[in-house]
């Protein structure tokens, strides 16, 4: 057990730093698309130290204080409950605790804690951001779960390790190719889950300055930024495991996740923003239908 804990700490450390760098890259891409030069790739580190360096920090109450902790626990937990690299002890994490469903549900641990913390600040913008986030999330869930269901039926398992194992042996075994419909549904859902345009109304920097985290600063910000580094990575690891054959080496994992992270970014730079009800309707239409088709496909053709 002790060995697992040490491994976990190392894995989290690696992923955090990788996440900071990727975020830097993404910001640069956004800048380039907007014909700006943008920040240096290591900008995230600068921000973190700056936030940490603030001499005072305030709190609005206990939940406010705990909110970022919940948030980061959610991010790290999500990462730690799944095998990031297939067959590598260092990155197998605590995946023995539960299967795919645990991951799906655990995503909300951070969301909920953060929502509660932000709400306690008493800032209306936080609350508005939270309601938007929750509302959008409900719709994003559906196509995503449909895709997961398709995968689970296809591989007859909810165990992520098992799913990865079945995708080994050549990229044609990836779910991407064996079940493109489910993959498509999931990738569309990913757009919503990543909170980038056109589904970034939750943060909506122009209207409700950055949404839920409005009131957060200093070391809270450190936690939130760290979460922003690791949480999307964890999600893309999940997608990688489900649809892109997983990874057998650390490098492969890093590359695949980077590519996956670029997908919402590429969509994001080229689309304007949806309102909440629009995105809800959208998710319950196109991706959901694709997801259902995916299940039908698995059910009738792969079984």
């Amino acid at each position: 057990m002790g060995e697992k804990i040490v491994y976990a700490i190392i894995a989290v450390f690696i992923m955090l730093n990788y996440g900071f760098l990727v975020n830097g890259v993404i910001r640069r891409i956004y800048a380039r698309v907007g014909r700006r030069i943008g920040v240096p790739i290591y900008q995230m580190y600068i921000d973190l130290f700056k936030s940490w360096g603030l001499r005072t920090n305030i709190r609005h109450g206990t939940m406010f204080y705990l909110g970022p902790i919940f948030r980061l626990t959610g991010g790290i937990g999500l990462f730690l409950f799944m095998p990031a690299v297939y067959g590598l002890a260092l990155f197998t994490n605590f995946s023995f605790s539960g299967d795919l469903l645990l991951l799906l549900s655990f995503q909300f641990f951070g969301t909920l804690g953060m929502a509660l913390g932000a709400s306690e600040s008493g800032h209306p913008n936080s609350a508005i951001g939270v309601t938007r986030g929750l509302a959008q999330m409900t719709a994003v869930e559906v196509p995503f779960i449909l895709a997961i269901m398709a995968v689970a039926i296809q591989y007859d398992s909810l165990s992520l390790t098992e799913i990865i194992a079945q995708q080994q042996g050549g990229f044609l075994n990836w779910t991407l190719f064996t079940n493109p419909l489910a993959t498509a549904a999931a990738l569309l859902a990913m757009l919503g889950a990543m909170m980038r345009a056109p589904f970034d109304v939750v943060l909506a920097p122009q209207e409700i300055p950055i949404g839920p985290p409005t009131e957060y600063h200093s070391n809270y910000m450190v936690f939130l930024q760290s979460n922003r580094a690791i949480f999307p990575l964890a999600k893309s690891i999940l997608f990688m495991n489900l649809f892109f054959g997983g990874a057998t080496t650390i490098v492969m994992m890093l590359v695949k996740t980077f590519i996956l992270l670029m997908w919402p970014v590429l969509v994001g730079v080229s689309f304007p923003r949806f309102r909440v009800e629009q995105s809800i309707r959208w998710f319950l239409r196109v991706p959901m239908i694709i997801g259902l088709l995916g299940i039908a496909y698995v059910h009738f053709f792969l079984k």
């Binding site: 937990g77 730690l80 409950f81 605590f94 023995f96 605790s97 539960g98 299967d99 795919l100 469903l101 645990l102 655990f106 689970a152 007859d156 398992s157 909810l158 165990s159």
Partner: peptide, 12 residues
């Protein structure tokens, strides 16, 4: 299909 250990989830 899957597995779940509530105790570990709680501890982690």
């Amino acid at each position: 299909y899957g597995y779940w250990n509530g105790t570990y989830v709680m501890l982690v």
